[in-house]
Design a protein around this nucleic acid. Sequence first.
DNA 1: TTGTTCCAGCTTTTT
DNA 2: GCTGGAACAA
Length: 721
Amino acid sequence: MDVTTIINSLNDAQRQAVTAPSQAMLVLAGAGSGKTRVLVHRIAWQIKVEGVSPHSILAVTFTNKAAKEMRARIEDLLSISAHNLWIGTFHGIAHRLLRRHAQQARLPETFQVMDSSDQLRVIKRLLNTLNIDEKQWPPKEVQWYINAQKDEGIRAKHCVEAGDTHERQRLIIYKAYEELCDRSGLVDFAELLLRAHELLRDNADVLEFYQKRFKQVHVDEFQDTNTIQYAWLRLLTDGNDNLFVVGDDDQSIYGWRGAKIENIYSFQQHYPNHQVIKLEQNYRSTCTILKASNKVITNNSGRMGKELWTDAGDGDLISLYAAFNEQDEAYFVVDRIRASINEGCLRSDNAILYRSNAQSRQFEEKLMATGTPYIVYGGLRFFDRAEIKNALAYLRLIANRDDDASFERVINTPTRGIGAKALDEMRNIARDQSVSLWAAAILLINQRSMSARATNALIGFLELIKSLSKEVEELSLDEKVKCIVHKSGLIALYQNEKMDKGEEKIENLEELVNAAKLFEFDKDNEEKLGEVDMFLSYAALEAGVSQSEDSEDCVQLMTLHSAKGLEFKQVFLVGLEEGLFPSQQSVDDTGRLEEERRLCYVGMTRAMQLLYLTYAESRRLYGRETYPRPSRFLREIPAELLQEVRMRATVSRPVSAVQAKSAMFQAQSQYKLGQRVHHAKFGEGVILQIEGEGAQERVEINFKQVGVKWLMLAYAKLDVL
DNA sequence: TTGTTCCAGCTTTTT
DNA sequence: GCTGGAACAA
């Protein structure tokens, strides 16, 4: 293996980071500076040059996508299978540790991972049994509180008793929730992390084992780690000085869910021998885009300090469009996107980024109306869909009859005459005798206290699960799922539902069977799990095949948060208005406002070639017309880097203003209406219309061969005939 | 058990 | 102004 393949493609700073001797290292990597590249090459370097066994390397990311990408790139670079390399998300790694050491973590071998909606259900049920009013204690808030405590590493027993009644009540709920989860072997996301931390903290032998095993520990997006994640990393690397972290304080946008930028500062204290390397050369954007982004982010205080630069040219100015309203904003954006597509851009070269999900609708409508394929990221994930959760609950219940959450979920889905009353009875029995709902159901039947009809319905359900268990025993995973989905009556249930919706659900269930078929079961997995359990964990920890992963070329719509880590040729950053972006809730809190500003920075630095910023002068919000002021972030961009696409003074008379403007541009343009031109690809044609100015100037041409097209003059190389 | 009506709420989101 | 959930009636 030639070392040069690992370091040749790197710049000086990158190479320095990759080839540094083992020590604590903080790589401050600006947007588009090759962050993942450094991580991948660092790991490759350690394996190939330092002779570290892949077995001794740990790499932690935040998303499954990032983990997958990193693994693929390492395999690609080294042409080896990175199979025994531990690369995963914090949650995935924690899960693995807990499976391997369930006993020492004081968990049952069969513990189940809950996702957030499972957690919410459990909390609702808990409040119910505690006779606590949901009005006074919104389950969402309780969930938020519990997770926040766990993210800080705080157990109920650590909280100081006393305080006001509200405080005390909250603690009672937290405590009861912990007990309930322990009793039924349920682990939520935050618990995975906290438990994994406690496992290492309280078991010297386990800790020593992993400290010895992991010669090198790498962390991606370090600025997004929360208290407990960082504490866990410190335990793991304690005394070894082998923590290699990559992050960007300017891209920390998850403070609201517990991420601590401070971890970057603490790192420097906790690892006194550390080295800091800044990656400031940007390989993504034009100089103009970088200048503007740098300028915006300098308004934040307490930065580590970092300024991106590039070899690339200035590129086009940033376009600013003041829309009349949100409709007009959408028209403008879609119009520009279509123009770029006509010019040969891929649809997926275009991204519309917004602050909040609700904003996507206008753009969707306009894209739909023009027949432009698009994809909206975010929203409901595959394994979060109700029909999928129902099917998985059957699968769970068959694997483990004491899984109360699953039991409750499917006992009357589809409806089989077991109502709230019977269920209440079972819950009471289960609580009084500390048994599972399944056992309680059997006791209830034997009591003969219910009507014959209810009893029979209950017996029917238990028999169904029993017979399904038997039937499914010998089948392959996908056949199991298929059988369960049909025999449980789920398919029949959705067939009777109102046409369109039910059909989609059935399709999703079929997709689930397909996912089971494609699921690669690793027999020698380190967690020592069976195939079904492995699949269930996968369902809980991975987003899964997001909404029909059509690889069709699509315009990309997403929130600024989900755009992190991505890049696009053309970016439309929309809704730049006070109250929307920055959001209303953050304007009077400096800390939160700075996070909004980082979000803006993230958004701007996604753009490779062209950046459009738009805002609306009037916007319907919650049914009311609002007249927001342009976002303060716009004022932070130097005017010389901006070009206004529409004069603000023309608001009152939009129609005539546009006409006047187009007349004005026609006069300036080097092209004239009716002029004959030649295009390299489309051949000869005649100019029908001219619009825009500067980089945005575009013309409509009637080509002899290919018909009428809109072309951006900045791209199109036209010869006047 | 199902359908209707009424009412609150409404950033960002991965695991 | 719309959506989802809960409460209620039939």
